[in-house]
């Protein structure tokens, strides 16, 4: 049985600026990282591998440069990585993306039964939190979202129990395989790659699946397969922030007092 983790290479969004004229993201010169949520999904997959002996496959849809992110997955111990890359996949929204990922998972299932699909709850560039559930829907898998802990895994009966964290409650859910689990960052602390593994990953040959291999209908993928389109990206205008006191305030109590007075004066908090 295998676990498939879906990971995405994203720009380090804290360093991304918006082009005020074109209304698009300026990605040039911005370093790429693994979507932080996905790093936790990957780690959870590896932990299940360590404990139950699953094979872990990481897949990613993206341009050829996303290979780096998959290599990093190899460095932490993933068994198999596949890059889903084709010009025709480009410009996809969450629907078209989940179509491609679901097709790849179906293909992997033919090789070895897929028990679980692990995704990060959302990506830091798109922030939709739709792709994980989209994959589950396309594949007809159970979907377990906002998971912050895996409580139990019953390999014999192919069932898994997870804890989902919502605003003011936890839900403990028990589900059969196959299931898609979208994880929160609290679920674990990702491991750090060892040097021998990093060196091994440097020369690792990443398998690439393009649409010749995937054989998908072009109306289901890329721009054509997308149900939504971005019209404009912009930062809302916002009044400039204010630093209270700054370096002159030495006493933390003073600073706290100033802050509280300010918040009260703006009617944001009340001392009653």
């Amino acid at each position: 049985m295998q676990i498939v983790t879906c990971i995405k290479q994203v720009p380090d969004t804290t360093q991304v600026k918006i082009d005020p004229v074109k209304g698009t993201l300026i990605r040039e010169g911005v370093p790429s990282i693994i979507n932080p949520f996905d790093a936790h999904a990957l780690e959870e997959g590896l932990r299940l591998k360590d404990r139950y002996g699953f094979k872990v496959t990481a897949i990613s849809m993206g341009p050829p440069s996303a290979e780096v992110t998959l290599r990093n997955a190899v460095a932490v111990g993933v068994d198999n990585v596949i890059l889903l890359s084709d010009r025709a996949f480009g410009g996809a929204d969450t629907l078209a993306t989940s179509m491609v990922l679901a097709t790849a998972i179906r293909k992997l299932n033919e090789e070895e039964e897929v028990a679980l699909v692990l995704c990060g709850k959302q990506t830091i560039d798109g922030d939709t939190a739709q792709v994980g559930p989209g994959i589950a829907t396309r594949l007809g898998f159970q979907q377990l979202t906002s998971v912050d802990r895996i409580e139990e895994l019953d390999l014999k009966n192919k069932r898994i129990t997870v804890r989902c964290k919502f605003e003011e409650r936890y839900e403990i859910l028990n589900s059969c395989f196959p299931a898609m689990i979208a994880v929160l960052r609290e679920i674990n602390r990702p491991r750090y790659p060892t040097v021998p593994m990093r060196l091994m990953a440097q020369d690792y040959k990443v398998t690439v699946w393009d649409n010749k291999i995937m054989q998908m209908n072009e109306n289901e993928i890329g721009l054509k397969g997308s149900a939504t389109a971005v019209r404009r990206i912009f930062s809302p205008d916002r009044a400039k922030g204010q630093i209270l006191g700054g370096d002159e305030v030495q006493d933390p109590e003073d600073a706290a007092r100033m802050l509280i007075n300010k918040l009260v004066s703006k009617n944001l908090i009340s001392l009653q």
Partner: peptide
């Protein structure tokens, strides 16, 4: 660090 990737938690973000 290099062979075991084992170090105090706070160093992960540092690295």
């Amino acid at each position: 660090v290099e062979m075991q990737a084992k170090f105090p938690d706070e160093l992960l973000s540092l690295f």
